Amino acid sequence: MQEKLERRSFILSLILVSVAFLVLIKPFFTPIFWACAIALIFYPVYRLLMQRFPNSPNSMALLTLFMCVILLVIPVLVVATSFINEAVTLYQKVQEGQIDVSKSLEQVRNAFPRVNDMLEGIGVDIDEAKQRLLGGVMNAGSFIAKNAIEVGQNTVNFFVMLGLMLYLTFFLIRDGDRLVNLIIHALPLGDEREHLLLAKFAEVTRATIKGNLVVAITQGSLGGIIFWVLDLPAPLLWGVLMTLLSLLPAVGAALIWFPAAIYLYGIGEPVKATILLAYGFTVISLVDNLLRPILVGRDTKLPDYLVLFSTVGGLILFGISGFAMGPLLAALFLAFWEIFMREFVHPEDMLMPPKPESKDMLMQHKKDNA
């Protein structure tokens, strides 16, 4: 009886201490997540370096971290800074009247009278919709401008978080295998289940950040280039927006370039509009179909509808980091249910048999850690 009471008291204390620790590190959740993600992506580089220089783990981890900063961190900072500058400049031009958004919308409206008649026929108030759109544009510009000021004021906090992320990334790269084995030993879920869940975590994280991000950056870059070639305003701004929207399947960058083509038709630029439409359908949209199967893989990719909902939900809950966290949570959700169906539900009771990819993932994970 005494031993049972002691065990229960210890488990309760363990839970309370763990919850308190999670609350303690909650402000650092984002840098911790990105440190884990970056370590997963660059860990193969570290392993390759360690094969050549097996007696220098600290130096090789530091070299890997340096490559991470050069290839990932610095380009992201440069693009983010340029994006904010262009957004603020564009917002100021709209405020000062150098760009008349109302006039442009009126030109588009006059260019498509049949569309206006159709919208009015179904009860849509064109003038009210126009005012709402103008208000949304101004609010978006104001939001970006205010946040740019806040980013400037919180520069010290940003670089502290960046420093913590890189500091943790170094240790995760150097001690990754030992930490994974420690987690597997500590968690009471069963070694095979833990291997499967960790393999799923690694797979989806790599696919989302490396694969989907490369696809998004490619689409955004191509979109920004065509905007620059056609002499449209703020090509870098629209290119970054296309990059962000390209993380969403089914819709993606078309939310920017297609309305832009309609706008060009409306203001009397049919040649530019036709070029943009043709380029969007034949180049930008095909990038997803060509690159995603190579970088992500059809067999391990989540269904497009699940990626869409989990990405949007992740962005709402976690901010910009949600494009990776959302699909990751969705993948872990499916992995837990797959384990449940495989181990706790009789095969004859299942409507659909589980895919054989779980065993392949487990074997691949064990092979990678060998």
Rank of each mutant, 00 (worst) to 15 (best):
I320W: 01
L245R: 06
R52A: 13
Q107S: 10
P354N: 15
V229C: 08
L105A: 09
L49G: 03
L12H: 08
L62N: 04
P347K: 10
V124A: 01
L315F: 07
S82H: 08
M67T: 14
V156G: 03
T64S: 14
P235Q: 02
S142F: 02
I316Y: 09
E120L: 10
A254Q: 10
A20Y: 00
I226C: 05
P27R: 09
L295K: 07
E150F: 07
I217G: 05
A148M: 03
G252I: 08
I70G: 04
P353T: 10
Y43H: 15
P293L: 02
H185A: 11
V137R: 00
L48T: 12
I74K: 02
L119G: 08
L328R: 07
K200I: 14
S18V: 13
E3K: 12
M138T: 07
L317P: 06
I316E: 06
P347G: 02
I184Y: 03
N181E: 15
E203S: 06
N157K: 12
G152L: 01
M118F: 01
L302T: 13
F42R: 07
V137L: 05
M325N: 06
P270S: 12
M242V: 09
P57K: 11
F323N: 14
F336L: 15
L77A: 14
S9N: 14
M363Y: 08
N147H: 06
D191R: 15
S221L: 12
A186T: 15
Y263P: 00
A129S: 11
N58R: 12
P233R: 10
K4W: 11
E86Q: 15
E96T: 11
F158H: 06
D304Y: 13
G326F: 02
A216H: 03
A250M: 14
F340G: 05
M352H: 10
I99F: 07
F10K: 01
I11D: 07
D117K: 00
V229S: 03
L334F: 11
P327R: 02
L315D: 09
V214C: 08
L197D: 00
V215D: 07
K26H: 09
R193Q: 07
A87S: 15
D100E: 09
E194M: 09
T274I: 09
V296R: 02
L24C: 13
V151D: 06
F309Y: 14
R109D: 01
G314N: 13
W257F: 13
L264I: 04
T155E: 04
I209A: 09
P233H: 10
L189T: 05
P188D: 01
M1R: 04
L168R: 06
F258D: 08
A278P: 02
R52G: 11
F340R: 12
Y167C: 10
V17K: 03
I173Q: 00
Q219F: 03
V73T: 13
P347N: 08
L40I: 02
I284A: 03
V180D: 02
L16E: 07
G152W: 11
S59A: 15
A39L: 09
V345E: 05
S321E: 01
H185Y: 06
I226G: 06
D175Q: 03
L317W: 06
D231H: 14
L276W: 11
T311Y: 05
L162A: 06
H346E: 13
I99M: 08
L264C: 01
M363I: 14
L351H: 08
A278T: 14
G141W: 00
V17M: 10
